[in-house]
């Protein structure tokens, strides 16, 4: 179908974006890559009265390092992160792998990192990665700038802690140590579809076993979640097939997936178990 009528503004700096959002309140919607917003407008599921197109705000398109953190500007296209060298170390490889799972090539050259996080699809790669790595999400509004931890940011399906007058301007991720290893596995019916379930892990193996294990899951509820019991199983133990199985079982116990047309609750729980085990095996074998 065709989208309903809207007004269109294309500001060139962040201040102007925030000014417009403050002025129009609930009626306003930020247009970044438009790869989720425009389909939902074409379906008439979304009917914003005014679109604030931020594609001309070049200051929001960057990947920068600041000490032990990577700052990702909201307008960074998915395709920029497909290049593992865009970000140093294991984090760059993790982001490149995740980016490659986002939609298809024409979606990736247009869609943006910040847009995906703000859209908050429970199966979206960047939302899961943000929760996995305890990202800090920066929101800018007329009252200034605030930092929202990823786990507080995602409230439920397509719902975040962002206020209507705020712009998600940046996502901050921690640089991973060179010794860190990751695994990222998705299951979907067709290439490029949103995952039915996805699992991602980061582990670091020291002389006293696994340190700082992180396990995050997508497609298991209204938001991506950390599998804390799986992390507890992994912490301090030496990697082994048996340990990974136990952690995967714990991850399956951590979730209460909702069933829908794409998979029942029980099926998704099964996928959590299988994919988490595979993600751990990939992490362990990552060179």
């Amino acid at each position: 179908m065709k989208p309903p009528r809207f007004e269109y503004r294309a500001p060139s700096d962040v201040e102007e974006v925030v000014g417009i959002l403050t002025e129009v309140g609930d009626e306003g919607k930020v247009l970044a890559g438009g790869q989720s917003l425009v389909p939902s407008m074409n379906f008439r599921l979304a009917r914003p009265g005014l679109l604030v197109d931020i594609n001309g705000v070049k200051a929001l398109d960057y990947i920068q390092r600041s000490g032990d953190r990577i700052l990702i500007g909201t307008l960074t296209r998915h395709s920029c992160l497909e290049n593992a060298a865009a970000v140093p170390g294991p984090l760059g490889r993790l982001l490149a792998t995740a980016a490659h799972h986002v939609g298809h090539m024409p979606i990736r050259v247009r869609g943006t990192f910040g847009g995906s996080v703000a859209h908050a699809d429970p199966a979206a790669e960047w939302c899961m990665v943000s929760v996995l790595l305890d990202a800090e999400i920066i929101a800018v509004g007329s009252r200034g700038r605030r930092t929202i931890p990823a786990e507080d940011f995602f409230r439920t399906v397509f719902t975040t802690a962002l206020e209507p007058y705020e712009l998600l301007s940046e996502v901050i991720l921690p640089v991973l140590p060179d010794s860190a290893r990751f695994g990222f596995v998705e299951f979907s019916r067709r290439a490029g579809d949103f995952a039915i379930v996805a699992s991602s892990v980061v582990i670091d193996v020291g002389s006293n076993g696994i340190i700082n294990p992180r396990v995050a899951l997508a497609g298991v509820g209204g938001t991506p979640v950390r599998a804390r019991s799986a992390e507890a199983v992994l912490a301090g133990s030496a990697p082994s097939a048996e340990l990974f199985r136990a952690a995967a079982d714990a991850a399956a116990g951590d979730v209460e997936p909702m069933g829908d047309i794409h998979g029942s609750s029980e099926y998704r729980r099964h996928l959590v178990r299988v994919l988490t085990r595979r993600a751990l095996e990939r992490a362990a074998s990552e060179a």
């Binding site: 790869q35 425009v38 389909p39 024409p106 979606i107 247009r110």
Partner: peptide, 27 residues
Amino acid sequence: CEHGVCGACTVLLDGDPVRACLMFAIQ
């Protein structure tokens, strides 16, 4: 499809293939 799934409307925008049903002409 008019929602970015089928790719029939793919055109090149500054050299990049994009879904023309997911862009507004004004952009």
